[in-house]
Computed example of a mutant assay.
Amino acid sequence: MSMVSIKDVAARAGVSPGTVSNVLNRPEKVAGSTRDRVETVIRELGFVRHGSASTLRAGHSRTVGLSVMDIGNPFFTDVAAGVEDLASERGYAVILGNSSGSRVKEERNLLVFAEQRVRGVLITPSDEDQTRLDMLRGRGIAVVLVDHPAERADQCAVAVNDVTGGTMAVDHLLAGGFDSIAYITGPSSLRQCQDRRRGAERALAAAGRDPQELREVSMPAMTAAAGQQAAEKLLAQDRLPDALFCANDLLAVGMLRGLLQGGVRVPDDVSLIGYDDIDFASATTVSLSSIRQPTYQLGRVATELLLDECDNPDTHAHQQIMFQPDLVVRESTR
């Protein structure tokens, strides 16, 4: 079978080759009925564009890179869904890179993105160093931070106010009249962990209590397995805290499992709250109270900012968007 060309598609659809090109590269610029007709012909003829050739002509591809810290965390899966949905609507594909919280792996992913000539990069960075992101910008690749506030005015970022979220979580626990509260967290280098602790300390101070009262159990990862290990650490101590604030729901899920296996009743003996409100937070043996983040919206809005910068570099205005979290109360707290 001979290769089908853009001219073949245009002839069958009764449009110009330029219109076919717009459907492939700038679908939002083509009327819906025309776009549908062209896409139908593309499917009928089995047309596949020569990606490498178009990339060489344009200097970039119709792809964007997404670098997340842990694709095994449903939080990032939901963010990725928001990214992919909007990118697909705009005629872009998404290349996913999972850094596993490793700067070395993250740098490798960014190198692959650059080699593939992505149009832009969405990233939840593993640390605060901007050097590698500035290198991407130097190559003409737009960058938007996801779940991380911007430190500078010359970049876009979409985040959730984690200080407020931490305050909400501990305010809720304080309302239960608990004497001792522990914070179960991940690596201290992560901004999210730092900000959620700051919020927790702010809640204690506002209640007239010493922020240093907050006991901390720091784990090397923010996974369910790490949460269960944290539970084992607490169970080995003389006295359990009255209430626990976990820096994400995976830690809380593991903590819940460890406590129940140790004969601790939740919430009768210990109240427990997580963070993120992932889908199965409501489906655990004892449904988890949590701080809800608008995960899908985070991904979608970040992609909107990225594509605007890519497609309208002369008129694009950098924005730093901060969403507010919500408290979701379920069975694990009282």
Rank of each mutant, 00 (worst) to 15 (best):
Y275S: 06
L306Y: 05
L306T: 09
V270E: 02
V301C: 05
L305C: 13
S287F: 04
G258D: 01
A302T: 04
L307F: 12
S289Q: 04
D277V: 00
L288Y: 04
F280Q: 12
T295C: 08
T295K: 14
G263Q: 11
S271G: 14
E304F: 06
L306I: 08
V266C: 12
D279H: 13
T285G: 05
V266L: 12
I291M: 09
R300V: 01
S271C: 12
L259F: 15
S271K: 09
L272S: 03
D279W: 12
L306C: 10
L260H: 14
F280Y: 14
D279V: 14
L306E: 01
D277W: 03
D269L: 09
S287I: 04
R257P: 00
D268Y: 02
R257F: 11
I273L: 12
Y275M: 07
R292S: 13
L306W: 01
L298F: 04
P267I: 05
T284D: 00
G258I: 00
Q293S: 05
A283R: 13
L260C: 09
R265F: 06
I273M: 03
V286K: 01
T284K: 09
L306H: 01
I291N: 05
P267C: 06
D308M: 04
V270W: 01
F280K: 02
V266I: 15
Y296M: 08
L260Q: 15
E304P: 05
I291T: 07
G263R: 09
L307M: 15
L260G: 05
A281F: 04
L306F: 10
D269C: 07
L256T: 02
A281V: 03
S290K: 10
L306M: 13
V286L: 01
L259H: 02
L288G: 03
V301K: 14
